[in-house]
């Protein structure tokens, strides 16, 4: 009698399956509850990994609901690598289709923001440029230049007030979220990622920058109502600009 790891894995992830044969107690009787220890270890450790990754989603839906939902998610999407810091990549999409959360429209984008914060936390280090490097450039040369953003920079665009929702659930006394679309910039000054609200057009501007557009091209993409000075201030404060290149 051999007990393969395929059967073992299936039974770990599906509590409705019988304990695989060949697993025994010291008297040779079926392992029963002894197997349940492994089942429980797996479910608890993966649930905790999701709780660590998505504290605001957890706060929004409540502990008990989150645990139950994590139990469903971890069986549909067991980790694909041993790096728990990356676990839950499919969680935002899961929230969109999981029947009990389907109607909570903002939840997936809140999860996406939390995921961006986590990725930012573990992103590669990079040295930000000094603000003078931008300020000293004559306007025509600045507009023809390209800027490089730090690996810890992320942009989340949402039809929901994700930044306000995040603040309201992490900062005491934060204002109540008002229904409106919000774009969020995540930067990591030194080690702690921080989300900031982006002004009109800024997310379009940053999308153009990500595609290696010049500042002038990005400005065109941003359209009317975009405040370049305000965005550059946000980027510099967040240590988000790591290079300026002129020409080509």
């Amino acid at each position: 009698m051999t007990t393969g790891q395929t059967d073992f894995t299936r039974a770990i992830l599906d509590p409705d399956l019988a304990v695989p044969p060949g697993l025994i107690d010291p008297q040779g009787r079926p392992a029963g509850k002894r197997f349940a220890v492994y089942r429980n270890n797996v479910a608890v450790s993966l649930t905790e990994a999701l709780e660590t990754a998505f504290p605001v989603v957890r706060k929004l839906v409540g502990d008990e609901f989150f645990k139950a939902m994590a139990g469903v998610f971890l069986r549909q999407h067991p980790p694909v690598s041993a790096l728990m810091m990356h676990y839950g990549a499919e969680f935002p999409d899961f929230l969109e289709t999981f029947p009990p959360t389907q109607s909570i429209g903002y939840l997936p984008d809140v999860a996406r923001l939390e995921q961006a914060l986590r990725r930012s936390y573990h992103a590669a280090d990079a040295s930000p440029i000094a603000p003078e490097a931008l300020q000293d450039l004559p306007p025509d040369r600045l507009m023809a230049a390209r800027i490089e953003l730090a690996p810890a920079v992320f942009v989340i665009r949402s039809p929901w007030p994700v930044h306000a929702l995040w603040l309201a659930n992490t900062v005491d006394g934060a204002p109540k979220p008002q229904m409106r679309p919000e774009d969020v910039l995540v930067t990591r000054p030194r080690f702690d990622p921080s989300p900031a609200l982006l002004g009109p057009g800024a997310a379009d501007f940053l999308a153009a920058i990500e595609k290696r557009g010049t500042l002038s091209e990005a400005l065109d993409a941003a359209g009317d109502g975009f405040d370049l000075g305000a965005l550059l201030g946000q980027l510099l404060a967040g240590g988000a600009i790591t290079g300026i290149s002129e020409g080509t």
Binding site: T9, L13, V42, P78, P79, S81
Partner: peptide
């Protein structure tokens, strides 16, 4: 111990015969 099977990582130290 083992923890990965069929590209699923189970995040626990599982036993082997």
């Amino acid at each position: 111990a083992w923890s990965t099977h069929d590209s699923h990582f189970l995040n626990d130290l599982l036993p082997l015969p």
